[in-house]
Nucleic acid binder design. Structure first.
Length: 671
RNA sequence: GCUGGCGUGGCGCAAUUGGUAGCGCACCUGUCUUGUAAACAGGCGGUUGUCGGUUCGAGUCCGACCGUCAGCUCCA
């Protein structure tokens, strides 16, 4: 028989369930308080602070500090510490929101003066003091009126209270990580408001914040943190709102984990394509040209040409016709297409020519439409597939230009497939297969699909019915592919929905690469038609698609993906010949003549450096193969391999060496 | 576009409280060159992003512009 003053709870740990009778006042701290790796509990699916008492029948699971929820709780608690430090230093600072994010947290403040690097150092010290004080986090349920009274000096919090209920926590989980959720839901949920106090040893309130929680039991649970940077951010992400100052930080379960994170960032920075572009002499951005306008050096040119050769050949194999169109056009074309009314801001301003306005093109589709319309079209010609390398220019805002991944002048491997509505699903599937095959050939496997659809804003044209059909077609094909599919509501082009391939770069930013868009609007606006089997005139659907997306961006991502150590087929220089001494240069030249005859990009290093220096240079240039030859090799009609990892293979007969290299190039393998 | 940081020879860096710009690599020249990540010596190269201002004097201070970095917003 159970004692009336006890509860029965179920403890779930590592998939094991354990029934336990405990005292009525038992809390998570009683169960796990000695274990610093437990930061909260999950009771019936809900995250709770450790100091809340259990109820009879509760199913209790400890939340470990290194689990996704545990890390979020740790980081969100660190955000509170940061905010306390800020308000202690800047009495006028008004609180915005302070959610956890990937690898860290931020907190927004309305302050008179932006934070300086010195501020960050001082704030970090202040945070350390708060952590040392082991301030307790105390949860307090308050009514809306109480919250308003208590936070009368916090205008942004008052706004959140007023908006309470509009948040949708179930859509994103408790912390709304990985985007998509309203970060403000960290402060207020849909129901009961809570305030978290930070209590000093004597139980006096050091600081308090409107917050859903949960939090770690006390600030001593934050073993390793750092403030990383600060920047401006618009209140609630809206450019029309006030600009707040955002403080970014990171927090980890241990000093070692923090150190590992910092090391990871340093390693990622070494892969940055902007840095490697200089080091490997691939491309540059001359100031004289203007922001976002790259030039490709000979080595980068090889990369670009290999990609273009590949994708041109593949388009032809997939039934596309290679076409060509100019870089500029009279502006009427872009009125017809609808781009000018909708996206004038994204285009370079017009040039006045003979009294009329000309525009640099920002897209190729209108010109391809003119090719389609250049004569009568039969249903027998469909799908009609046009493809070109289109040079387009987009007036990207100055703050968003970024290396090769966000430029103002770029080359799209752009295609438009004109199809009957019935052919559309098949064509989209065809294009998606084309794209996934291309990504595989370039060694990219870590990507996901995004389905960008319309929302109810007025920037989309066409009927709801047409949008629904187009969206459904794309969704079906994307789902059938089995690739991870992420919704992107409101992200569609004004003329139709799209599927895009998103790839992450070295620093975790994701970039849109390939796109497939379903467009029923432009065929109507351009009056495109074909004659059907029954003699009637019908309007085609056009499917826009770019496989690399932008060649420039793809190169940027490739550089980071391979950290500059490209597979042989893409490497600007595939083989460097290194004579052990000057006199073996002629022998290597003979060998390299054979390589070059086989189409290999191979150079003998005849500089007056010594062998060791030549090896070092080739290594730094990340050349896949170093072929070294001295007396032993020459006598044997052989060469010696040195690979990028420093391993070597000596005395390889020349024919075998050529076969090994040409084989790896042909198979597009990495070495 | 917004907020903040930064801007010194091709690259990476240095220059005390404002006092007339240094180093390494690269490059050029010469001598060297036999086994897997830097031979030795000499030399060329910048008026410090641009323009304007303060000052007897500015790379060092101020302003504008350009570029760049981080974040925000945006991304047909």
């Amino acid at each position: 028989m159970r004692n009336v003053s006890s509860l029965s709870i179920t403890l779930v740990r590592d998939d094991a369930r354990e029934q336990r009778d405990v005292e009525t006042t038992t809390t998570g701290l009683d169960l796990f308080g000695t274990d610093r790796t437990v930061v909260a509990v999950r009771v019936g699916g809900e995250l709770r602070d450790l100091d809340r008492p259990f109820a009879d029948g509760d199913v209790v699971e400890p939340v470990l500090i290194d689990s996704p929820d545990g890390l979020a709780i740790l980081r969100h608690s660190a955000a509170h510490v940061a905010a306390q430090a800020v308000q202690a230093r800047h009495a006028d600072a008004k609180l915005g929101i302070g959610p956890p994010i990937v690898d860290g947290f931020y907190y927004d403040f309305d302050v008179a003066e932006p934070f300086t690097p010195d501020d960050l150092r001082e704030l970090e010290k202040a945070m350390q003091r708060i952590v040392k004080e082991r301030q307790r986090f105390r949860r307090r349920e308050v009514s809306d009126e109480e919250a308003r009274a208590e936070l009368a000096d916090e205008p942004y919090k008052l706004e959140l209270i007023a908006d309470k209920g509009s948040a949708t926590p179930e859509a994103t989980g408790p912390y709304g990580l990985e985007g998509g959720g309203d970060a403000a839901s960290v402060e207020v949920g849909a129901g009961q408001l809570t305030i978290y106090d930070n209590l000093k040893r004597d139980d006096s309130v050091a600081w308090r914040d409107l917050c859903r929680g949960p939090h770690v039991p006390h600030t001593g649970y934050i073993p390793a943190f750092a403030l990383t940077r600060n920047s401006a951010a618009y209140w609630r992400g809206d450019q029309a709102n006030a600009q707040l100052q955002r403080l970014y930080g990171t927090a980890w379960p241990s000093r070692e984990a923090l150190k590992a994170y910092q090391t990871r960032l340093e390693e990622a920075a070494k892969r940055d394509h902007r840095k490697l572009g200089v080091e490997l002499d691939l491309f540059s951005f001359p100031d004289e040209l203007g922001s976002g306008l790259p030039v490709f050096h000979p080595r980068g040119g090889v990369l670009k040409r290999e990609m273009e050769d590949y994708v041109r050949r593949r388009h032809i194999e997939e039934g596309f016709s290679y076409v060509g169109t100019p870089h500029i056009s009279k502006e009427g074309l872009f009125h017809t297409s609808g781009h000018l009314p909708y996206y004038a801001d994204g285009m370079f301003p017009p040039m006045d020519v003979e009294g009329g306005n000309y525009h640099l093109k920002a897209m190729n589709c209108p010109m391809h439409n003119l090719i389609f319309r250049s004569r009568g079209r039969s249903y027998r010609e469909l799908p009609l597939r046009l493809f070109e390398f289109g040079s387009v220019y987009r007036y990207e805002k100055s703050g968003v230009v970024h290396g090769l991944t966000r430029v103002r002048g770029m080359t799209q491997d752009d295609s438009h497939s004109y199809v009957t509505p019935e052919q559309a699903p098949g064509e989209i599937e065809h294009l998606l297969n084309f794209v996934t095959g291309l990504l595989r050939d370039f060694g990219l496997t870590d990507y996901y699909l995004e389905l960008s659809t319309r929302d109810d804003s007025d920037k989309f044209i066409g009927s709801d019915q047409e949008w629904a059909v187009a969206t459904q077609v794309l969704q079906d094909v994307a789902t059938r592919s089995g690739i991870e599919l992420v919704p992107d509501p409101g992200g569609a082009a004004y003329y139709g929905p799209k599927i895009s391939v998103q790839i992450r770069d070295a620093i975790g930013r994701s970039w849109q690469m390939s796109t497939i868009q379903y467009d029923f609007n432009q065929p109507a606006r351009f009056g495109l038609e074909y004659q059907a089997a029954d003699g009637t005139r019908q309007q085609p659907v056009m499917i826009h698609s770019a496989k690399f997306g932008s060649i420039e961006r793809f190169i940027g991502v490739l550089v980071e993906h391979y950290a500059g150590a490209f597979p042989p087929w893409l490497a600007p220089v595939q083989v460097v010949g290194i004579p052990v001494a000057d006199e073996f240069g002629d022998y290597l030249e003979e060998v390299f003549a054979g390589l070059r005859a086989a189409g290999v990009r191979a150079e003998v290093d005849h500089s007056d450096d010594r062998m060791q220096k030549k090896i070092r240079n080739a290594q730094k240039a990340k050349v896949p193969y170093q072929l070294i030859a001295g007396g032993d090799d020459r006598d044997a009609g052989a060469v010696s391999f040195r690979y990028r990892d420093g391993t070597q293979k000596n005395g390889v007969p020349v024919a075998d060496a050529v076969a090994e290299i040409t084989g790896a190039i042909a198979r597009r393998t990495q070495v």
